[in-house]
Nucleic acid binder design. Structure first.
Lengths: 378, 378
DNA sequence: TTGTAAGCGTTATCAA
DNA sequence: TTGATAACGCTTACAA
């Protein structure tokens, strides 16, 4: 017959009693830490099995002061970027015996603050966070000097002096933009998200403390600057950080009297939204417009044309963050490290050389988009 | 100056001492449960603030027997289907004061077993699981009669008699197939994943205990049967549950001497993989082939042509599961309920009527696929 | 090797 | 309203 129909799980005490050994002895065998004679050990294990004993890890955590749980705060698990990151984290954490508590912050500093405190109160052994705001991190330094290990993901906050795992977004954006410039484009637009509330920066120093989008924007501007191209503010679009946001900004770009000949987007959401807008307007890529996206998601291969994108090692971002965190938890000392993972440009079919490559921006006025003919719309 | 540079968090005892009140009194104010005079209350709160007191939720859980944590086991958080589900769960759980521990099972029953036990040992208040195997659920019933609330997601296991939140995959597949049949298709293929190890079922009773993919396959077959169409086993493809798997099966389909005129896929991974294969072969959809996918993901709108798909309420699947679970946790009684959420067909441009609609299957031999011309390949 | 006893930081009970 | 004191289930000295 099954042990108990419901309720009351067996405890070490119960097992000890059933095996008629001392409490601590049972605890030692079950917890696997002291030493016990094989004979007794067998008795205890048998009793445990018949009672269906399962250890209470909460109690264990209370006693040991370690919960074997990691806290992870990302903007939105629905964003494939973060989903893949979380997978990377999880794949490293589990084999090491750590579980993951996941929280979405929606890029809201306040949600993050609450989440992070809650996680700390739940006694997680460490926290990985993609910080929502780079200028609002009191809650993070609070954690830090409470002694809780914390690893920043995707966005660094130098003032925190915490471990961080990021990509070089500045350089990535620069490379992509360079490529468009090399193809002869002079009116290059960028669709980025409003998380970069910074005004268009006129200087291009490696940004000290600015969000992901801001860094990529800076890289874009730097490339233009290096090429001696003036920045047309009309071509710098801050979208709300949604597909719809990018959609409408990309649309607005094409409505300009002098639309861009190339568009660069700064993350996968922007890429999707902008691309959809171009599709709906039946703008031919790359004939009418060159397009450079961000994030090498599966779908970028199967659209028409396949998109050239900046590929970042998303999974590794998560895995590395987890490894870093586990290292700290196991007591690795040393000052905080910022790990910068490499990106690369993936060239597919969405950009092309434009003919008049020499500073004739004025004459590149685009003709109104003709109604498309390729796609069998339904 | 900041309280402590590191280590040792303040406890209720510390606060009590600092406020010079009894320990229990401090505990009551801080825990917000007993009654305390406003005056004392103020003193305690002040002391707590200056000491930077943060409750230890683990200790609280020990005492109360409730951890305010939910366990969630899905196949793979990278799959957008599960990512959206988890978002739905999280959005319901958090406002209710519950955190979520996330585990990936990769559809492996054994991973799931380990995960589920670990979660139980961590004293989660309930578990939501998309069970990997419908015939291997000992670990789940084990939980059940330990009294831990459990909600099945996406896949029901009738023998368990647990709450479940699913869609009617049978009907969904049937509808999609019906639609293809109505368009005159007679050689209709299906690309599904190998999780349905069931042989091609010859009977179409509402499947008692079969995985998601199997149910959808049954719906497909049922539709064919109702239309009096014979099943060509060559057109029933079990792919490994990856993009690559679907890719190669779809490719194989088109290599048949008598390829299908329509393809139906049974989840978003199959859809992506199959579609990519068709793209790469430059098969024109819907001119050369009609295509019906599964899951209304964003990218299905922006491919060429936009895909007709079975849309399921993914977010709601998660949200409903969480609501159901919370209900049980709060003690709602009553027998297990299976909630079936509605699906719907989204018609876009990937299917079309075929001319010879009347049982002339034999004459529908397709001509070899001509090299495509539309896409500016790079 | 075994057992006793003292925590871990809460909540819950019960007098005062 | 207060304040001891006993759980909660485990680990960790410390003795025996």
């Amino acid at each position: 017959m099954p042990t108990h129909p419901k309720k009351k799980a067996a405890t070490v005490r119960d097992v000890a009693k059933a095996a008629s050994v001392g409490f601590a002895t049972a605890a030692r065998t079950l917890g696997g830490y002291g030493s016990v004679s094989p004979e007794v050990r067998g008795r205890v294990l048998l009793a445990a099995a018949t009672l269906g004993y399962r250890p209470n890890r909460l109690a264990r955590s209370m006693a040991t002061g370690t919960s074997r749980t990691l806290g992870v705060v990302v903007a939105d698990i629905e964003n494939q970027f973060f989903a893949r990151i979380v997978r990377g984290i999880s794949d490293v954490a589990r084999p090491a015996g750590f579980e993951v508590i996941l929280v979405n912050s929606d890029e809201k500093a306040n949600e993050e603050r609450v989440a992070v405190r809650m996680l700390a109160e739940k006694q997680v052994d460490g926290i990985i966070v993609a910080p929502a705001a780079v200028n609002d991190f009191g809650h993070l330094s609070e954690l830090q000097d409470s002694g809780l290990p914390i690893v920043l993901l995707d966005r660094n906050i130098p003032q925190l002096a915490a471990d961080a795992v990021v990509i070089d977004g500045m350089n990535a954006a620069e490379e992509a933009t360079d490529h468009l410039i090399a193809l002869g484009h002079r009116r290059i637009a960028i669709v980025t998200d409003v998380l970069s509330e910074t005004p268009i920066p006129r200087d291009f120093r490696p940004p000290a403390s600015v969000a992901t989008a801001g860094i990529r924007l800076a890289g874009f501007l730097k490339a233009l600057h290096r090429a001696g191209l003036a920045v047309d503010e009309l071509l710098v679009r801050r979208a709300s950080p949604t597909i719809a946001g990018a959609y409408s900004e990309a649309g607005a770009l094409m409505d300009l009297t002098s639309p861009p000949t190339a568009i660069f987007t700064t993350d996968n959401v922007m890429t999707l939204g902008a691309f959809e807008a171009l599709q709906d307007r039946e703008i031919r890529i790359p004939q009418d417009l060159s397009f450079f996206g961000f994030d090498d998601l599966d779908w970028t291969r199967i659209v028409h044309p396949p998109l050239s994108v900046v590929a970042q090692p998303v999974y590794e971002l998560g895995a590395t963050a987890a490894q870093t965190l586990l290292g700290r938890i196991e007591g690795r000392a040393g000052s905080a490290q910022v790990r910068v993972l490499p990106t690369q440009l993936v060239h597919r079919g969405s950009t092309r050389q434009v003919s008049n490559g020499h500073r004739r921006a004025k004459s590149i006025n685009r003709v109104p988009v003709p109604p498309g003919e390729i796609r069998p719309q339904t």
